[in-house]
């Protein structure tokens, strides 16, 4: 039934959110009945090719989903889901980078508030929306048939999504990044009276020892967690909770570091001591200013971690409930 589930999933993607569950349940029941009837007739399980034939007769996911949508005028029901998808992706692609650039300016130098005129963004959004709508309206008017554009096949549908699966490439990337970070961090910031950072002599407050060991411990713990995720690539409640705790501690320590004025002195060859003092104060000020942004980013990361734990708990409860009723 993998092919059938993938087919239903592909249809579900294009359906109106409020009716998704209902429509899919009904369609699923019909298709399963068809398959069962055919199996009874043949006296054996259907092969993938036979299931594929049933699904192909039913129609491509986009065509099936489009029949459940109300009639549109400028852009018809077949093209409309695709239009919305493209528009959303374009608008996100337009808004997010600008917001990040704006945030970056704010973090680097709060005096540049408003340097990047955000009002320009609305004009850009309007342009994007207008030209996307225009392009789709032209396609609609020209009568291009979506089904004819590609040789659709149920076998080519994306595999079933599992939000609790951890892609191995993610774990490998994390392991690589943490390992490189650990080596660099230990070699550069090992607690000592004066740290040599690419020619600059940096003196840190004694409290740096606490930060150093905290970061090192957390990074090593995350390395072990990513290693476990590599070999057991599914989130469990335990590992999701551990990731939440580790991220929480990491965020806490990092935010505390920003408020600590940990930088005591910087000495750079060819830089006058007075200017070096100004630079030291400037960096400490930047770090202090970044505190609230760090809090905001930490909250987003932790909210995602909490969501993962809640999702796993909910899934676990519903499984137990199903078993209890079985």
């Amino acid at each position: 039934m993998d092919l059938l589930d993938r087919y239903l999933q592909a249809i579900e993607f294009w359906l109106p959110k409020r009716q998704r569950q209902d429509i899919i349940a009904e369609l699923s029941e019909d298709l399963r009945s068809q398959i069962e009837e055919k199996e009874t007739e043949l006296g054996r399980k259907l092969e993938d090719a036979e299931v594929e034939a049933i699904l192909k007769r039913c129609g491509s996911p986009l065509t099936v989903a489009s029949r459940y949508r109300p009639q549109q005028y400028l852009i018809g029901p077949t093209l409309f889901p695709l239009y919305r998808f493209v528009l959303t992706v374009l608008l996100i692609g337009c808004v997010v980078p600008r917001f990040l650039i704006w945030l970056g300016f704010l973090l680097v130098d709060p005096a540049h508030r408003g340097y990047l005129h955000m009002e320009n963004m609305w004009v850009t959004i309007l342009y994007f929306a207008f030209f996307t709508t225009l392009a789709f309206a032209i396609v609609e008017r020209s009568g291009v048939k979506l089904d004819d554009l590609g040789h659709w096949s149920p076998r080519k549908l994306p595999p079933l999504r599992n939000p609790n699966r951890i892609p191995r490439c993610n774990s490998l990337f994390e392991i690589g990044a943490i390992a490189v970070f650990n080596v660099w961090f230990v070699s550069m910031f090992w607690p000592r009276p004066v740290i040599d950072l690419y020619g600059a002599q940096i003196t840190l407050a004694p409290v740096w020892q606490i930060f150093f060991w905290s970061f090192l411990l957390l990074a090593t713990f995350n390395l072990a967690l990513s290693g476990t995720n590599l070999f057991r690539p599914h989130w469990t409640r335990l590992r999701a909770s551990l990731r939440l705790v580790a991220d929480g501690l990491g965020a806490g320590v990092f935010c505390w570091l920003l408020r600590t004025q940990v930088l005591v002195r910087i000495t750079v060859p060819d830089l006058e001591p007075a200017k070096a003092t100004v630079l030291t104060n400037l960096i400490n000020t930047w770090m202090a200013n970044a505190f609230w942004y760090a809090i905001a980013i930490s909250v987003m990361i932790l909210a995602f971690d909490v969501y993962r734990v809640v999702r796993l708990n909910t899934a676990s409860r519903s499984t137990l409930s199903r078993l209890a009723h079985a």
């Binding site: 009716q19 429509i23 009904e26 369609l27 298709l31 039913c58 129609g59 065509t63 459940y68």
Partner: peptide, 11 residues
């Protein structure tokens, strides 16, 4: 009548 026609019609 195929399922893609029937169910939207029923709705």
């Amino acid at each position: 009548i195929d399922e893609g026609t029937l169910y939207p019609l029923l709705r």
